[in-house]
Amino acid sequence: MIEIKGLSKFYGDIKVLDDISLEIKEGEIYGLVGRSGAGKSTLLRCINRLEDFQSGSLKVDGVEVRDLEGTKLREFRKNIGMIFQNFSLMQRRSVYENIALPMECWGYNKDEIDKRVRELAEVVEITDKLSSKPRELSGGQQQRVAIARALSLNPKILLSDEATSALDPKTTDSILSLLKRINRNLGITIVIVAHQMSVIKRVCDKVSVLDKGKIALNGKVEDVFLHKQDEIREIFGGANKIALPSTGINIRIIVPEEGESNRIISKMAQILNVDFSIPVANIEQFKERTMALFVINVECENFNKVAEFLDYQNVTWEVVENE
């Protein structure tokens, strides 16, 4: 649906996006994550041509976005809704009028607008606020209005530019589940820009991690987050590398949190009768499922036994190098 190939963008001499290539499929929730200044918002804005780029190609449904001008560009943008960090609602219009604005400008008739506004208010759960002014609403409610407005023209794609960055964790959760619901029920492709990993982790199918204008990591969210932890830590800094035991062998084990497999550790202890320690045990919440992540430390002579057992149990595991 969105196909980006070798896209580069400069501000003067500064390269802000460097040879970006990625593909976003219909119905996906795709995450662009990175530190501030990594170019993720700029890349997002290239998709609906709020930003121009100098070289490469960006196609949406097979249409080269760079070639669009005038009315064609406006028609094209109609199919792409967008929401922003600070909601960007018109303070002098009521919630109803805010949602209606794009339809008004595109010449929908009054009955159509009324029907659609009420429908959308239901989707985003703000039916009782339609006559309020935005400043009377909380941040989360304002973002809901913005989402309703973004959906008003029946877009195929929804771009979300740090839409939850100004919200508290609980409100963030509710907005994220709303986005998930919209994706599932309306089949709208969503591209999410965020600087919080947790946001991407919970809602996205695929992710590109941007660093200094380049794509540093790319792939399915679970793969990237489970297998590229060190790279992610290097890009984002933040939490210090966990000091793992320097003797023995450290093994990272990843299992689905539900069902039998989450007892793998205790099972292993019982069956193999080996000693090990568990320096790391985490639960990671993803869009579709929850994964448990352990690092266990075994003595070298037991390694083969353990590896064999894990393979036999069909568990994803890898050796973490000692520093």
Binding site: F76, S88, M90, L101, W106
Partner: peptide
């Protein structure tokens, strides 16, 4: 941001100026 919003919905410049 409101100008960007207007653009993102494909409004014309005249609409962005007067309606927004």
């Amino acid at each position: 941001g409101l100008v960007e919003v207007g653009k993102s919905f494909g409004l014309s410049h005249t609409q962005i100026i007067f309606k927004v």
